[in-house]
Simulated assay, not measured.
Amino acid sequence: MPRTGLSAEQLKEKAIDATLVRVRRDGHDKVRLSDVARDIGVSHAALYPHFADKAALFDAMLERWLRDSTESLAAVTRRSGDAQARIVDWFVTLYRMKRSRALDDPAPFRAFDVASAVEKPFAIAHVKDLLGQLQELLAEAGVKDAREKADLLFRATAAFHHPTLVTQSAHDDLEPQLRAIVRLMLRGMTSK
């Protein structure tokens, strides 16, 4: 245990929590590792074993932030019932989360947008996880070539989940259009 009385994992989580608070308050450009360390009562040197620099700390914050999204969508995937209805629900859940974060938690959402644009490994892994969930649902719905179709459907609905595009339209509720697009594409994918 470090002299803080916290385990290494506790210190790491506390630093991530403090970073999220600072990002929300000051924006991601103004957050410094030394400020986060001061907020949690340690020297900035105590953070270096866990985060090589500010970018690594931000990556950890966003990775945890995205994990919540991935888990919420996985819950939709695991539900019972009609697979096509769950696919629509999956997209609606994704859209609602992204839109809510764009409106209610804009600073971390902008940081996520930047991370996505520079193709950070955790952002790539997040998309891969989402595509895996979607592929599983499509296969359950009887869609042939589910992997290929998952990619196609995900790309076709980018306006409803890509961070830049969601931010641009967040003040408009596009959920009815999303539902119609997904249903239309599913009808085409499942027709004989």
Rank of each mutant, 00 (worst) to 15 (best):
E140H: 10
A170S: 15
L134V: 02
P163T: 06
F109N: 14
L33C: 01
V42G: 11
V23N: 03
D29E: 15
G132H: 05
I181R: 09
A102F: 00
R99C: 07
L103P: 11
D89N: 06
A180I: 06
R78D: 13
L152H: 12
L94P: 05
H161W: 15
K54G: 01
R96K: 14
F58L: 06
M185Q: 08
R147L: 00
P176S: 12
A37E: 02
A139Q: 15
V166T: 04
D113A: 12
V31S: 06
D173I: 00
K12N: 13
V21N: 10
R147M: 05
V42W: 11
Q84Y: 10
A46D: 12
Q10R: 12
A123G: 12
A46L: 01
L11P: 08
T167Y: 04
V127N: 10
K144Y: 12
T77V: 12
A46C: 03
R179V: 15
T70Y: 02
H44L: 05
S116E: 14
L33D: 02
E136N: 13
Y95T: 00
R155S: 06
D113T: 02
V36F: 15
A37M: 10
L138C: 03
L186G: 07
V36N: 08
M61L: 06
R79K: 10
T167P: 02
D151G: 15
I87Q: 06
R183I: 01
R187Q: 08
Q133V: 03
E175R: 13
L20P: 07
H28M: 01
D89F: 00
S43M: 04
D26E: 04
L138T: 05
A8M: 09
D53L: 02
T77E: 15
D129F: 00
A156N: 08
I16P: 11
A159W: 14
E136Q: 11
R187E: 15
F109S: 11
T4P: 14
F58I: 06
G81T: 08
A170K: 15
K120I: 00
V76C: 14
S69Y: 14
S100Y: 12
A123I: 05
R79P: 05
A117T: 09
E140Q: 12
K30H: 15
L11D: 07
D129G: 04
K144S: 12
W65L: 02
R101W: 13
H50I: 02
P106R: 09
G142K: 03
A46S: 14
P49Y: 01
Q133H: 14
D104T: 07
Q135L: 00
L174C: 04
A170C: 06
Q168N: 14
A156Y: 05
K120Y: 05
D104R: 07
P49W: 00
K98T: 10
S72G: 13
D35K: 13
T167S: 15
M61R: 06
T19V: 03
A107K: 13
K54R: 08
H44R: 10
L20Q: 12
T157K: 08
L6E: 08
A60F: 03
D145Q: 07
K120V: 01
A46V: 09
S34N: 13
H44G: 03
H161S: 11
K98Y: 10
D17Y: 04
S72M: 07
T190Q: 11
D129I: 01
Q10V: 04
L103K: 12
G5Y: 11
L66P: 04
